[in-house]
Each structure stands twice: as C-alpha cells, then as structure tokens.
C-alpha cells in the first residue's frame, strides 16, 4: 500500500490539479479543431497547448508543483516516467534529465506500455515501495503531440473529426491530447488517498484490436475489486476513448465484472487522449472529483494490454 503525497496536472485546461478539476467541473474542454498544426493533411480535433511545449521542461514544472516538502534528491526516491513517444522518440534520456534536474542519483524507470502506461507506472511504484526498495516514487506521465503521432492515428482512421463521444452510438473515434501530470507516492502511512492494488493483463488476442470478450480488462477489474462489493465502489474511471471497438470492449468487461451500476467517469471529452499522461491525469481528476471512497481506474491499449488500479480515501 502506498500513499499519495501530492500531485499536479499541466494541460491546455490549466496549470495545476485544481485548475484542471475546476475546468472539468465547469464543463470546459481543451478540444479544438486544428487545421494548421503538424502539417496535417486534414483538419483534426485535439487538445493542444497553444504554445508548443518542450517535453523535459514541462515535466520538470509538473514535478515542481507536486513535490511539496519531498526530498527528491534522496536515494530512497525513484523517478518513474510514463510515456509512449517521450521527447522526439527518445524515452530514456528525457527521464534521466528530469531525475538529474532534481539531483536524484538513481537511474529512472520508464514505463512504456502503450495507453496503459500511466496506470502501469503507478503499479510499478506500488510494487517497488511495497518491496521496500524505495521510500517514495515520483510518477510522471507525459506525451506531446507530433506529426508522427497524428499521421499514424489518421492512417489508422481512429481520429474523430469532431469532439469525441465516448460510449455514444454516434461515436466516431478518438481525439488526441497533450498533458503532463505527476503523482508523488510514499510508503509512509498518512491520511488521504492511498493506492491499494493494481493489475495488468493481456488480451492475447490482437495487437491493435481490443478483445471482443474484454478478457484482459475483465481480469484486471476482478483482480482489483476482489473481496469488494460493487456497491462500495464510488467511482470507476474508464478509458472511454470513443473508438467503436474499445468502448464496446470496456462495456463488456465492466458488465462481466458486475460493475455496470458503479458511477463512471470518462475524461477524454475534456483532455483528449493524452497517451502516456492519461493514466496519471485521469487518476488525479478521479481522486479530486470524489474526495473520498473507493476509486477504480482502468485503461487499455495497443499490444492488447489492459491495466487497473484501486485507490481509497477514508
């Protein structure tokens, strides 16, 4: 079990977790139709920073906001970066630059498990701290959009030309987004949110299409809700990318796990799909939205991978 000390989000919706939560509560969205970014051959709808951001300084700013009194230079602190494309396709060097900036002596860990990375990075923190290898973990999620990513998703025909509609019969695909977010965890017992359990499962079905039976996601959900009555769960933060098949897969997995009556949150209409940042951003918003209780966060991604975590605040 590990405990949340602090967190931050920087997104087109604002600077800091509070600004982002307020934006979500007010129904503001970062999604806009763009015609002149990334040499795109067609207009696309995404949540982008007005001014292009650099990966490393953006992450550093996010950590600065989240760190509070934590001594990040201490050897008992580990930096864990969740990202899919890092800084211009380099994933390790930016993680190293961030850790070094804060004087941390340990080589950082980068988690790159497609769209589930932000949840998987928190699971990695949970395991390393539970095993007593470190006392605190700085979990950073970040991805910045590029021509590389936009063109790829366009080629996949996965992008919606308008703001996405998760779980709607009229959904047309996903919107991409940019954000960075940080959560600092400690193994020292304290009040507030704690991360209790995590699970990762592969569908073993297809590398780019979700399982029809939602097998991996179903297994993750049953793992993290073991021994818990669905009525006790206050919020289920779903992935809800608004692609035809992934939303269907999630619905199947949620129903199979008996969680269909749990209140759900889906944040893609506010932030877009922020890839490596999604799991961290959406965990923070979920914690802030309900303030207390049991919160389950789930994600799924390319490579057939699914992940879920259980957080609790009493």
């Amino acid at each position: 079990m590990i405990y949340c000390i602090g967190h931050s989000i920087i997104s087109p919706l604002g600077e800091g977790s509070q600004a982002n939560v307020e934006a979500v509560k007010a129904g503001r969205s970062g999604l806009k139709i763009h015609t002149d970014r990334f040499e795109s051959v067609e207009p696309f709808c995404a949540s982008l920073f007005d001014t292009p951001q650099e990966f490393v300084p953006l992450c550093i700013r996010s950590v600065e906001m989240a760190k509070g009194e934590t001594d990040l230079a201490d050897p008992s602190t580990i930096f864990i970066l969740s990202t899919t494309k890092g800084d211009q396709l380099d994933l390790f060097t930016p993680a190293q630059s961030i850790a070094r900036h804060f004087g941390n002596p340990n080589p950082p860990i980068v988690v790159s498990n497609a769209c589930t990375s932000g949840v998987c990075a928190q699971i990695t923190a949970l395991r390393l701290l539970d095993a007593g290898l470190y006392k605190s973990a700085v979990v950073i999620g970040c991805d910045i959009q590029t021509k590389f990513i936009i063109s790829g998703f366009q080629a996949f025909k996965a992008l919606s030309p308008e703001p996405c509609l998760p779980f709607s019969p009229d959904r047309k695909g996903l919107n991409l987004g940019e954000a960075t977010a940080t959560i600092i965890y400690t193994s020292e017992v304290r009040k507030g949110w704690r991360l209790e359990a995590g699970s990762i499962h592969n569908d073993a079905n297809h590398i780019s299409a979700p399982s029809r039976t939602g097998e991996g996601a179903y297994r993750c959900l049953t793992d993290v809700t073991e021994g818990i009555d669905p009525a006790e769960i206050d919020l289920l933060g779903v992935h809800g990318t608004a692609t035809l098949y992934n939303d269907d897969m999630e619905r199947t997995a949620i129903e199979r796990a008996g969680l269909q009556n749990v209140p759900m949150s889906v944040l893609k209409p506010f932030f877009g799909h922020t890839m490596g940042a999604a799991g961290v951003v959406e965990t923070i918003i979920g914690m802030e939205l309900i303030q207390r209780g049991i919160f389950i966060k789930m994600l799924s991604g390319f490579g057939g991978v699914n992940a879920a975590i259980r957080l609790r605040c009493e």
Partner: peptide
C-alpha cells in the same frame, strides 16, 4: 493472458 509489461531502462 497474464501481465505484459515493457520498461525502458
């Protein structure tokens, strides 16, 4: 159908 994880180290 167990865990699959990828780390960059």
């Amino acid at each position: 159908q167990g865990e699959t994880s990828c780390y960059i180290l």
